[in-house]
Structures are given as C-alpha cells and as structure tokens.
Computed example of a mutant assay.
Amino acid sequence: SLCVYLLSLTGLWTTDLAKDTILWLFFVGFMTLGKVNKIKDDRDYFKKALKKNFKLSLLSEFLVNFYTFSLAVELIIVPIITLISVTIAFSEKDSKHKPVHKFLTNLLVVFGFVILFYIIFQFAGNPWGIINLPNLRGLLLPLILSILFLPFVYGLSIYMFYETQLVVLKIRLSPELFTYAKRQAFLRFNLNKDGLSRWVKRIHTDTVSKTEIDRLIDHVKEREAIEKNPPKVDPALGWSPFEAGNFLSDEGLKSGYYDCVYEDEWFSSAPSFKLGDKWSDNKISYYVHGTDQVAKRLELILAVFTPQDNLDLHKRFCIIAARLYSKALNELISEKILLAILRSKSITVNKGNVSVSIRKVSWGNSTGGYDVYFTIECRSTSA
C-alpha cells in the first residue's frame, strides 16, 4: 500500500490500474513473500530478481494482454498448455522422467514461438492501437512495484534471519548473557548474515561471560578480514586454504568457512554433490584440511551406494579429480592415476613434497557400497 501511495503522489498510479495492482500482488507480491525464508540461501537473489523484471518477457506479456485469440482457439490452447506445464513440473521432480521433461519443455517452447509470431504479426498490423500512455503505465507498473518492494523483502529477510539465530542463542545462554549477545549482534554484524551465522555456531552453553562473547565476535571479524585479503602461501608448504576451497567451485563443490575444529586443526568442506535426487544416491564430497594459514591436505571422496552404476560414477569422479589435480599441482593428471580411479585401485604417487593417493574403503554391507578417496597432501612439516 505504501508503494501504491508513493506512486499515486507522482501520478504514475491511478485507480484504473487497480486490477493490474491486484494481479501483481497475487502473482508476484505474495509469491515473493512465500520465498522470503529462502533468500538467505541465495546470495544473488536480489540481483536475479532485478534482472528478471527487466527481461524482454515483460514486452511479450504486455502484448499478450492486448492481443487475444478467439474464444474457441483459447478453449483449446489454454487447457493444452496448462496440462503440459503441470506435467513438466511433475516430471522435473524425478530423474527417471527426464526424457519426458525435456520433450515437453521443447514442445512448450515451440508453442511459445508460435504464439509470439502471431502476436508480432498482429502488432505490426496495428501498432498504434496499444502504444499510448495508459498502456505504457500498465506495462511499467509491475516493474516499478517489484523494485519498490525489494527493500521491504530484504528487510523482512534480515529480520527473519535474526529471529532464527536469536532462538539458538536464547537456548544456549543465560537471560543476562542473551540480552548482551543480542545487542552485540545488532551492533557488530548489522546486515552481515554470514558473519552472524558463523558467530552463533561458535557459541556454546559453556560461553559464560561477556568477554567470551566479544572474543568470538572479534574472531569472526578477523577471519572475514583475512578471507577478503588472504595471505600468499609458499607452494612448498601447501596451499592457501581460501584458494583451495574454490578449486572445484566450477564443479559445484565450493567449500564453506575454513575454521578451527580442534586446537591447531583447521578444516572446511563443500556441500556434497549428489549424483541423483534420492538421499541414498551416490555423491561426491570435497574437504580441505590444514593449519590456520596453510591447507595441507585436499580430499575428494566418492560415496557409491549403487555399485552397478560404478563405471559412470568413476568417470565423473575422474573428471573432478583431474581438475583438482591440475589446480593443486599446475599440471595434467597422469594416465596411471586416472586408471587407478576407474579401477578403484589403491596407489600412492609422490610428486616432490606432495603425495597423491587413491584408496578404496568397502562398507561391508549387503549393497556392496564403498568410498573412494582421492587425496593430495603436502608432506612439509613447516607452517
């Protein structure tokens, strides 16, 4: 309502746009609010939202609203397109229906082009029938409302994120410490959701003083500053843990925060890359181990739940392992190592101060599942 009020003051909104406003509210506004709790998982959400509103699809939607088919044609087309769309949404959930999903998606694209060409043909015959100020305002209204709505959505996402994190703090801390921690969180982290989440994870029930709370905040701030400007690491000692964490980002295996797990043992991991949609599907994981300044061991693990698919799985694993090898050692992986991965053969290859090893660990269960470890480790004891 505030957005509409501001637009009405400038003359961009009038009562004849009430229908368009209501449609935007139901099809964009409410849907955006329904996804607000997922914004924290997508750092580029607002950038994507702005791009989406600037797409040329706005023009095609505008033309569609002014050029309609006859009732008989629409009674045929609308149910068909609706059925195809619903089937696409259903088939997308299961990889077994991938061929059907691909076929129907292409079919829908063909439908779209046919309709678009028809609209362009009609528009070319009578362009001035719709090029006027009221129609232009109707075209721009969804875009303007979406842009004005984004700050509210962002603020709401920040509020909900803080509420979620503060619930955790309330459980772990005494009432007095919770009040202090909440105030420090707002003052020190502001809009920094990553820093806040990282700090909350480090607070435990044994955090019994305000000094400890401040120390943990300082630690998170210090680590964030280092990550923004990471120090150079001598290749003879290992790898930069921050660079190593990004070695496989193109493969969907970007590691998270590099942090201390026990005394001088530091660690980061990437969310497992599942090779399927089920919880029991085969997956690939990536881990970085080392000290606070240097990554010493890079570990890629293939978990095989269904050995009958092992050839394709090992080929995929070979591709990712080869990329990790080239990133870590600045050279192409050897055929000997690739064959060992394909055959699940345990070997160790020494390359100066670096060892490259492959080992298979059977689970000993009825399915015959196993893990394949591909490890690159710097044996230097310094740093």
Rank of each mutant, 00 (worst) to 15 (best):
K351I: 09
S334K: 13
L339Y: 07
L338G: 13
A328E: 00
K327A: 12
A322F: 05
S344F: 01
N350G: 08
Y325F: 13
K345A: 07
S326R: 13
L342Y: 02
I341W: 00
S344K: 04
I319S: 11
V349R: 06
L332I: 14
A340T: 02
L329C: 03
K345E: 10
A340I: 02
I320P: 03
L324R: 02
K351M: 09
V349G: 01
S334Q: 08
E335W: 04
K351R: 09
A340L: 01
I319E: 15
T348W: 05
S346K: 11
Y325I: 04
I337G: 04
S346C: 06
K336S: 07
L339C: 11
A328I: 02
I347W: 03
A321K: 07
I333L: 07
L332Y: 11
L324S: 01
Y325M: 03
A340S: 06
E335L: 10
I347V: 11
E331N: 13
S346M: 06
I337E: 05
A322S: 11
V349E: 08
L324H: 01
N330P: 04
N330H: 12
R323Q: 15
K345L: 14
I341Y: 01
T348K: 12
S326E: 13
I347E: 04
S334D: 07
N350E: 14
R323T: 10
L332G: 11
K351N: 07
R323L: 10
I341N: 01
I333G: 04
K345N: 14
L339W: 09
K351T: 08
L324Y: 01
I333H: 07
E335C: 03
L329V: 03
I319D: 09
I320M: 11
N350Q: 10
L338Y: 04
I341T: 02
I337N: 03
L339S: 12
L324Q: 04
A322T: 10
K336E: 08
S346D: 09
S326I: 10
N350L: 14
S346I: 12
N330E: 14
I319N: 12
I337C: 07
T348R: 15
S346P: 05
T348V: 14
S344D: 01
E331R: 15
A322V: 15
R323C: 03
I320F: 03
I320K: 05
K351L: 13
R323E: 13
I319T: 08
I337Q: 06
E335M: 07
N330Y: 14
L338E: 09
A321G: 08
K351D: 07
A328K: 01
I320V: 12
K336A: 06
K336M: 04
L332D: 15
I333W: 05
N330W: 08
K327F: 09
L339R: 13
I347M: 05
L342E: 04
L342A: 02
S326N: 15
S346H: 08
A321T: 12
S334E: 07
I333Q: 08
I337M: 10
E331I: 11
E331G: 15
K345G: 03
I347T: 05
